[in-house]
Amino acid sequence: MLNKNQIAQRIAREVKNGQYINLGIGIPTLVANYIPDDLEVVLQSENGLLGIGPFPTEEKIDPDLINAGKQTITMVNGSALFSSAESFGMIRGGHVHLTILGAMEVSENGDIANWKIPGKMVKGMGGAMDLVASAENIIVAMQHCSKDGQSKLLKECTLPITGIRCVKKIVSDLAVLEILPEGGFKLLERAPGVSVEEIKSKTEGKLVVEGEIPEMVF
């Protein structure tokens, strides 16, 4: 099984040179730690920044410089600042190449649910609906099962939907899976020590297994 940092590390291998990338809150934020130094990429913060840098040192903290998770940040050389309307314009306009975000559930046709649990306080969708409706490539970081062992990779989402037919790839604590255009989770890689049988038993939606499934190497 992968821990949170390993999920982030595995997702970082999907990043390509020259991409503009939006990282969601939680595990996706950790992906930045694992992007290889020889790749030139730009991280977008939807409150209005291209070029997120590392977290600041205590002396460099600036309350006027935060990311979408409201954490204090720095800017890299070549950064640009803009309004929230401009920011979502570049998201909706398809200029951001890759969106990485967390999910509570994903369905076999790529629907995602990650903003609301009935009966619990609704905090709001923030920018998630805009991001999933527009991004050309969406990778989801998630736990394969809930704490009580229920699969979160489903035929159909049970929670309120954030966006439909949008997820392209999932990196869970157990596996890397691709969403097939015709529907179904295609198993690409197993986490170290996790068998295909275990992944099958923990995936409620249609799982497609073809040939030998390689184990991830860290």
């Binding site: 840098g53 590392p54 977290f55 600041p56 040192t57 205590e58 460099k60 903290i61 309350p63 006027d64 935060i66 998770g69 409201k70 954490q71 204090t72 940040i73 720095t74």
Partner: peptide, 14 residues
């Protein structure tokens, strides 16, 4: 006041 909600710092870098 410019309050900060998530004061996040890195060690050494930044």
């Amino acid at each position: 006041e410019k309050r900060i909600e998530q004061r996040t710092v890195s060690e050494g870098r930044g």
